[in-house]
Amino acid sequence: MTVLVVGASGATGRLLVEDLLSRGHRVRAIIRAPGKIPEALRSHHLLSIVHANLLDLSDDNMTQHVNGCTAVASCLGHNLTLKGMYGSPRRLVTDAVRRLCEAVWANRPQIPVRFVLMNTAGNSNRDLNEPVSLGHRSVVGLIRLLLPPHIDNEKAADYLRTSVGSNDSAIEWVAVRPDTLINENSVTEYAAHPSPTRSAIFNAGKTSRINVAHFMADLITDDDTWSRWKGRMPVIYNKGFS
C-alpha cells in the first residue's frame, strides 16, 4: 500500500507518517520544508518526500503524485500565527482537499481511493443535524467571523460530504474530528463516536495527537475500521473524555 500524506511536517502528520511506516506501508509526503521532518524519518527506505508547496503544484504534477496511491491523508492546518490565521491562503485545507480529489478523479482508479481528512470536533456534521445549544451556535458564529481557519475546516469537510458524497466510484472518505489536541508519547485508549458526546465549546474533551494518527492509520489500513466509518465524521476522544 502507498499512502500520500499532506501536512506531514505538522505535529500530527509526522506521527501519522511514522505510524504508517511502522506498519510497513510506503508513504509519499508532499512537504514544503522537509527539514521539519526528523532525519531518522527522512531517511526511512519506505518514505519518499516531494519537496513542494502543495497548492503551487500544477494539476498535472498533483495528478502524478496521487497516481498509484491507495489512500490520501490530509493533516493540513493553519499555523497559529497572525499570518497563518489571517494571511493567504485562507482556504488552505479546502483547496487542498478539492485539488487532491480532482487528481484522484483524473487518475480514474480501479479501486476507490481512501481519503482521510483530519478535521475538528468544533465542526458539526450537517448530514446528521447534530444538536447544539443556542450558546454553542452563537460562539461558533463568532468564531466563523474572527477565525478564518474554522470556516476552512468546515468547507473542507463539506466538500467531501457534498462534492464527493457517499456514492463516488473513485473516492471514499472519512473526516476525523478530534477535540482539544494534546501531546502524549504513546498511544492510549481512545473512543470514536458518530457525533460529539460533549460540547467542544463549553465542555471540551481531549484527544492526543498520537491517538489521532493511530486512528487515521487504522482507517487507511484496516478494512473493518474503514467499512464502519466511511462517509462519516467520527469524533475521537481519549478514554476518560468521552
Rank of each mutant, 00 (worst) to 15 (best):
T221D: 07
D218N: 13
P38Q: 05
R98W: 05
A40E: 13
Q110G: 15
M85E: 11
T2V: 06
A156K: 03
N125I: 05
H25F: 11
S43A: 15
T180L: 06
L55E: 08
W229D: 06
I210T: 06
I30D: 04
S58M: 09
I49N: 09
S166L: 15
Q64L: 12
H193V: 03
D59F: 12
T180E: 00
A121T: 02
K206Y: 10
H51I: 04
H45K: 11
D224P: 00
V140M: 15
N79R: 15
E154H: 12
V66T: 11
L134N: 06
R28M: 09
P194Q: 12
R32A: 12
R209L: 06
L4K: 04
A157H: 07
A52K: 08
S227G: 12
D60G: 05
N185W: 07
A29W: 08
L117W: 00
V140R: 15
A213M: 03
H214P: 00
E154Q: 13
V132Y: 04
H25I: 07
G231R: 01
E18R: 13
P109H: 05
D19L: 09
L147W: 13
Y190T: 01
N125G: 07
D158L: 13
L100M: 10
R26S: 12
P109D: 09
V113G: 11
